[in-house]
Computed example of a mutant assay.
Amino acid sequence: MDNDVAVIADFELELDDHEDDRSKYTPVEDRALRLLGRDNRVAISLRQPRTVETEEPGRAAYDIGLMLALHPHPRCRFAWARLLVDLSSTPDAIIEDMVPHEVDGRAVDVETRVGLGLKFAAVFSTVDLEANPELARKSSVFLPRMTASGIGFRKAYWDFTAHGGDYLHTNGELRLLVSAPVGQAVTASMAVRAHLRLPGLMNLVPVRKRRDAAATVELVSLPAF
């Protein structure tokens, strides 16, 4: 891992009772699902934020890089995952832009820089992973189907969907361009939901970040004086 990237959250998952219909599982299956759920973990890493120039008085802007890592139990496989970054704890913070917006399922290398008017300029290039499998390890390469939303609001969503029974890759760098009042730290709460594929079960199993896991992290710290 790069020196300017650090793990800011690492937690277990639990069954998502809000989505799950408990009646479709026997008591034995229900207990097995809860045990397996605790052996599936999620980690979120944060790159050191970069200050971005802005012409708006009293506002500061930051290029924030995040990475989502899914660690499935050997008997499980992630089919879908959602990362939510909620800036509501930071007064007047706004998501100005985010990258990637959408990946259609073909492996792409995303070259991103900050453009004019607090927007990202991104160039998507298709890559051949069969000929160059080492490219899958690059933080700028994205494999699964992906959609994103949240520009102009305070909540950013990234959804990742695997191809059929393929492994779900989520290890690309997710970039947020955030503006906030000058001199104010930027904090966010993190939430993760996912669907797991388990052997012997026809339906996907919905899981979420454990409710007792810490959720609030500091994305941009105030300078020390």
Score class of each variant (00 low, 15 high):
residue 146 M to S: 14
residue 94 I to K: 08
residue 77 R to E: 03
residue 118 L to S: 14
residue 129 L to M: 10
residue 66 L to N: 06
residue 86 D to Q: 08
residue 149 S to I: 10
residue 152 G to D: 05
residue 82 R to E: 12
residue 78 F to G: 01
residue 139 S to K: 14
residue 93 A to Y: 09
residue 61 A to W: 03
residue 113 R to C: 04
residue 92 D to S: 13
residue 112 T to V: 15
residue 62 Y to Q: 15
residue 102 E to V: 14
residue 165 G to S: 10
residue 93 A to N: 07
residue 81 A to S: 14
residue 100 P to Q: 06
residue 145 R to I: 04
residue 146 M to Q: 14
residue 161 T to K: 07
residue 83 L to W: 05
residue 61 A to G: 09
residue 85 V to S: 10
residue 102 E to I: 05
residue 159 D to H: 12
residue 106 R to D: 12
residue 158 W to M: 08
residue 158 W to L: 01
residue 147 T to G: 12
residue 95 I to T: 06
residue 148 A to V: 07
residue 88 S to M: 03
residue 72 P to D: 09
residue 122 A to F: 01
residue 73 H to V: 06
residue 74 P to K: 09
residue 139 S to V: 09
residue 107 A to C: 10
residue 124 F to I: 02
residue 162 A to Y: 11
residue 64 I to F: 06
residue 70 L to F: 03
residue 132 N to T: 14
residue 144 P to R: 07
residue 105 G to W: 04
residue 107 A to Y: 04
residue 59 R to H: 08
residue 145 R to E: 10
residue 81 A to H: 11
residue 86 D to M: 09
residue 122 A to V: 09
residue 96 E to G: 04
residue 86 D to T: 10
residue 162 A to Q: 06
residue 131 A to Y: 00
residue 79 A to P: 00
residue 86 D to W: 04
residue 99 V to F: 04
residue 166 D to F: 01
residue 136 A to S: 13
residue 152 G to T: 11
residue 109 D to L: 06
residue 125 S to T: 15
residue 123 V to A: 11
residue 121 A to Q: 13
residue 157 Y to D: 13
residue 96 E to K: 10
residue 138 K to L: 13
residue 144 P to A: 14
residue 103 V to N: 15
residue 138 K to P: 00
residue 84 L to Y: 10
residue 129 L to P: 06
residue 92 D to K: 07
residue 95 I to M: 01
residue 128 D to C: 08
residue 124 F to W: 11
residue 116 L to R: 11
residue 104 D to H: 11
residue 117 G to L: 05
residue 122 A to T: 11
residue 143 L to C: 09
residue 118 L to H: 13
residue 87 L to V: 14
residue 59 R to C: 03
residue 165 G to E: 08
residue 151 I to C: 08
residue 150 G to Y: 03
residue 74 P to C: 03
residue 155 K to P: 00
residue 72 P to H: 02
residue 133 P to T: 12
residue 123 V to C: 04
residue 135 L to F: 08
residue 140 S to H: 09
residue 112 T to H: 00
residue 106 R to E: 15
residue 71 H to M: 02
residue 94 I to Q: 14
